[in-house]
């Protein structure tokens, strides 16, 4: 595989961007990554983005966001209706072909105008599941209850994960739920969908994330310590409730194995778990041990920008590798109910 690295990453996230459009959320981040690398849009070989029309409430919503990139003269560009982590994968593939040396990846989500927990119901099997309108928290709760009742995880462990998120998020400028990192505080948070408390569910957020990828020498020229992508893989599980084991994250394990997560010590892991019990499942699937710092940013629990939370995990891990906080990191992104689809990206510093 060709050596490709993340050479710049930026993000903005807050509970709601009430007075900015998606384009306006992104503009300062584009400016930041361009300043960080000295690369202009005309230097970029391929641009790829990820977003959702259902989230925005309008068809072809990504067409408007293209305006933020500066798409003239025309650019080589594509879009996935997926979390931006998969846009990054598509860009990485293009770089592997060897005809371009740089790529710009972005994604964004503004769920504050709608009700995300309901919007996500439209993602389910339209004939058998969606008509029942199970909301996203209820689905998470079903899985959490199964895990608790079968001793896959304990209530204390879930609380511990929620406390960890609040603790780590305290030092993160992008986290929207932070501080009060005590067991008592978390245990006092209201039950949203029994057995899930508010703190077991990711804090909703609006935001955007932008990453620049570069290959070989160009990466070294524009970044002091690029985060080299050593493995990037994604897999999906079956969708049907009856067609999968909800007590494990099988496709995450498959992707992690293919990406070589277990080949060496992992210093940092950024896992995209929309619920505490799912963060636990992911740690198991990826074989994370105590020697790894999990979600130093606070993770998706501390701020969950739909369609960008996965790309943000990659950005968080890459930024830490570039800053020298670790030599080897893994980032994970998920999509669909019960961690149906998963992407794993392993990065290393020089």
């Amino acid at each position: 595989m060709r050596d490709v690295a993340i050479v710049a990453a930026g993000q903005r996230q807050q509970a709601a961007f009430t007075d900015e459009t998606e384009v306006q959320i992104l503009l300062p981040i584009f400016e930041q990554v361009r300043n960080d690398t000295g690369l202009e849009q005309s230097d970029i070989g391929f641009t790829c983005s990820g977003s959702s029309d259902f989230l925005a409430g309008s068809a072809f919503s990504f067409v408007g966001t293209l305006e933020g990139v500066g798409a003239y003269p025309p650019i080589c560009e594509s879009h996935v209706e997926m979390d931006g982590a998969w846009a990054l994968y598509e860009a990485w593939v293009k770089l592997q072909i060897g005809e371009i040396d740089t790529a710009l990846v972005y994604s964004y989500g503004k769920s504050s105008p709608g009700s995300l927990r309901d919007v996500l119901s439209t993602q389910l099997d339209p004939y058998y599941l969606a008509p029942l309108w199970p909301d996203a928290f209820a689905l998470g709760a079903l899985q959490a209850r199964m895990m608790l009742e079968q001793d896959i995880v304990s209530r204390d462990r879930l609380t511990e994960i929620a406390v960890r998120s609040r603790d780590h998020a305290s030092s993160s400028p992008h986290a929207v739920r932070k501080g009060d990192a005590t067991t008592d505080f978390v245990e006092a948070s209201p039950v949203i969908a029994d057995p899930l408390r508010a703190d077991d569910c990711a804090a909703g957020a609006d935001g955007g994330c932008v990453i620049i990828l570069a290959a070989g020498d160009i990466a070294k020229n524009v970044c002091d310590r690029p985060a080299w992508i050593r493995g990037i893989e994604h897999r999906t599980d079956a969708h049907s409730l009856a067609g999968r084991d909800l007590l494990s994250a099988q496709s995450a394990a498959l992707a992690a194995n293919a990406a070589g997560v277990g080949d060496d010590k992992i210093d940092i892991a950024e896992l995209h778990g929309p619920f505490t019990h799912q963060e636990h499942l992911l740690e198991t699937a990826l074989g994370i041990t105590d020697e790894t710092i999990v979600n130093p940013s606070g993770g998706a629990l501390a701020g969950h920008t739909m369609m960008a939370a996965g790309l943000m995990r990659i950005a968080e891990a890459a930024t830490r590798v570039s800053a020298g906080a670790g030599d080897r990191a893994v980032a994970h992104a998920t999509s669909g109910p019960w961690l149906q689809q998963n992407l794993v990206c392993v990065m290393e510093g020089d």
């Binding site: 959702s52 439209t122 389910l124 969606a130 999906t236 669909g336």
Partner: peptide, 23 residues
Amino acid sequence: VMMPEIYLAEALGCAGKPILRVH
């Protein structure tokens, strides 16, 4: 249907495989 490829995973024989959705 939001991101219907998620629901279509089985129909497309994708379980355990990678699937990308373009728009």
